[in-house]
Design a protein around this nucleic acid. Structure first.
Lengths: 242, 242
DNA sequence: CGAGGGTTTGAAGTGCATCAAATAGTGTGG
DNA sequence: CCACACTATTTGATGCACTTCAAACCCTCG
């Protein structure tokens, strides 16, 4: 099933994903042997909340949105993930059911892996178990911070905070970054409406002196941005790992 | 150091905490031997965010608030915990540093246990590791849901949702419950100001026919409450495990 | 009884959402 | 290369939700 070249590529991808890093080549091969690469067009739903979770996924390319829908049709975006990130893996502790839905928001290439193998190997391989703990704990800190942001930061501060996390950590001045996906999606990722996003971004621009044209953002000096955004947060820049 | 009777009591408490349930008596004793019971008066800080995490805690009695403070002095309440709940344990995957502060909000009795033992034993005892996974994954679902609530529910709906979670699951009508701690704390737990809480509770009363006097809440029929609160949420009553 | 915190209420302001409409940007077929 | 359709984004006007500040009311505990 799995071609040699593809398998090599998959093993390469494993190196970059925290869950698989540092595993023995044997364990890695167990996963690689059951891996299936699939192309998902933009907009396609990968799985639905409450569905039985047979697979978890590594993103090779593209962007994936995790979300949940309420009865009245509105959706809450849990997270938006890109290359070398993994999703659906928590289902193994969740009665084998996905706790959110997943959808490709750009044309994407995913590696699917059976959750059964993950469950099996976690029990056998202490290093894998340790990695899983690390992944979960990291995710947890992220979620905690997200709650803090939603509770305490204004929409403009949240956007500023997001921009700061896109900046290269070593560079302090004359930074140019690109918004990673469209503004509508970004708005929902930050828990606001597109209109609010647009207006809040203008406010942020006026208060911090950044320049925006389309998806391009120029930041002359990080400090104006941190002064504005980080005062409504318990961490100071640079936030280690959000 | 540890008296026999106290040790028995601690082992009894272990049975009720998911992290320790089902462990061999040997493993349990390793923990019990290093356990120290401490009384914490209302208002006392147990540990501060960013501090080195030598201990984690089981609550034997009382209420403990986990929170984080921003630079401008406002605080975000992460969680409020009661008997048989455990806290501070995630620090072992967090560079040995507490990721939030903890404070007793009622006179409380805690069992402190060294994080070093937990770290050691998780590597040795697969059952303990499994329990830890279960605890983390449960916490994760809770946090996800909290984000959803903050994003999609109104303040009144959030209060209704909280009340529903206090109701005994089997009873559908003529329920009387007590708010577990004071309304100021409850407000911050639900991400709102005391004044907003008060007003929103009035709105909830008017819309769902519940009666409130002080901390006492009478609910004639669950269904009015679920109709009002659960429409802004992806789960339906009863929410399994928040 | 009086002090002090918890709780409610009132008035006014802010932030974000909503609805509606204009504008910019992108890809299509001609 | 243009006209068109369609989507993304911005802007304007308005409303609702929540906060803020101030003051009153309660309750309880010394």
């Amino acid at each position: 099933m799995v071609l040699w070249a593809e398998k090599e590529e998959i093993l390469g991808l494993f190196k970059e994903t925290p869950l698989f890093s540092g595993l023995t080549i044997e364990t890695q091969k167990i996963f690689a042997n059951t891996a299936v690469t699939c192309s998902i067009p933009k907009g396609q739903v990968i799985y639905m909340e409450e569905n039985h979770a047979d697979f978890f996924y590594i993103i090779k390319k593209g962007w994936v949105k995790l979300f949940r829908e309420t009865f009245d049709g509105t959706e809450a975006v849990i997270d938006i993930l890109s290359s070398s990130h993994i999703f659906g893996e928590f289902s193994i502790f969740d009665n084998g059911i996905y706790s959110s839905s997943a959808q490709a928001v750009e044309d994407s290439i995913l590696i699917s892996l059976p959750t059964s193998i993950l469950k099996e190997q976690i029990e056998k391989d202490p290093k894998l178990a340790f990695n899983m703990f690390a992944v979960m704990s990291r995710y947890q800190r992220q979620q905690d911070k997200k709650i803090e942001h939603l509770t305490l930061q204004t929409t403009s501060q949240r956007i500023g905070c997001f921009l700061l996390r896109l900046c290269p950590q070593n560079q302090k001045t004359d930074i140019v970054i690109q918004l990673p996906y469209d503004k509508i999606l970004l708005a929902s990722r930050l828990g606001m409406k597109p209109e609010s996003f647009s207006r809040s971004l203008n406010i942020l621009r006026d208060k911090t002196g950044i320049r925006i044209s389309g998806a391009r953002v120029e930041i002359d000096s990080i400090s104006q941005l941190t002064d504005f955004s980080c005062k409504g947060c318990s961490s100071s820049y640079p936030c280690e790992d959000i």
